[in-house]
Design a protein around this nucleic acid. Structure first.
Length: 261
DNA sequence: ATGGTCGTTGCACGA
């Protein structure tokens, strides 16, 4: 089962890149972030014509997440699925696809360490951890994937020194991510790749992609029963190139041998 | 190609 996460930075603007990418790569499950559209505008008919069921949790101008699947799409839940007041922003959804529970997450950016949005980011991650603790059996096959807006360690940042005092690399953010892994999730990319310099996001500004100035912030986290079935994971840098304008994120593609699940 | 962002019911702000 090929599971992909891709922050598309507006599905409306990116549809002419996303459709041919799906045709070329045939993901079984495709998790999208930053669709930036309402549920009414979500092009479910386009995906249905390609053989995909889909569900979308959107709010309009900002945020928005979706899950596309050609291996079933059941028990869709918007948000954290807990009893607390709903998150005001459309950043999380769940579905069961091909026997795997899938969570598609767009973690808040944080903006800067002294910003209220950074506090929101840390609280959001803790709420996700609590939702896992309260609602998921860690021995079940679960993948939590999406744009985490966190570089797990310094190998995941083009110049760690340039990010001192900035978001995405701060210890509280990395600790919040560690809270998820301590619950039972594994960053499956690091099961297959040790080296530094493998990124999933490059700023549009200043020719960052051309210079190799990126970060690995789009993650595929899996529970142990699923992580041990991951046969490979790669980042499709080609999707960050060319015209029409690409997203500033590349798709991350993880293969799982789910036949025995 | 000797610089260099993109997206939004935008025209300032978030990423």
């Amino acid at each position: 089962m090929l599971v992909v996460t891709w922050n598309v930075n507006s599905l409306k603007a990116r549809l002419e890149r996303v459709v041919p990418w799906i045709e070329a790569n045939a993901p079984d499950v495709l998790c999208l972030q930053e669709t930036k559209m309402t549920d009414e505008a979500f092009p479910s008919g386009v995906f249905a014509e390609m053989g995909y069921e889909s569900a979308h949790v959107g709010e309009g101008r900002w945020n928005g997440v979706a899950i596309l699947s050609r291996v079933g799409l059941d028990d869709v839940v918007a948000g954290f699925g807990d009893d607390l007041p709903a998150d005001p922003e459309a950043r999380l959804m769940w579905a069961t696809c091909g026997g795997v529970r899938v969570a598609c997450a767009y973690v808040p950016n944080g903006r800067s360490l002294d910003n209220d949005h950074y506090t929101y980011k840390l609280a959001w991650l803790e709420r996700l951890r609590s939702a896992l603790v309260d609602g998921v059996d860690p021995t079940d096959p679960l993948v939590v994937t999406g744009d985490f807006n966190i570089a797990p360690d310094d190998r995941d940042v083009w110049d760690p020194a340039a990010f001192e005092g900035a978001t995405h690399v701060s210890q509280p953010e990395r600790d919040a991510l560690a809270g998820l892994t301590q619950w039972g999730l594994t960053d499956v990319f690091r099961q297959h790749h040790d080296q530094a310099g493998l990124y999933s996001w490059w700023d549009y500004r200043g020719g960052s992609f051309h210079k190799g100035h990126g970060m690995r912030i789009d993650l595929v986290l899996a529970t142990e029963s699923l992580a041990q079935r991951c046969s490979g994971i790669r980042i499709d840098r080609d999707a960050r190139k060319g015209k029409p304008t690409p997203s500033d994120h590349a798709p991350v593609m993880a293969d799982f041998d789910t036949g025995s699940l």
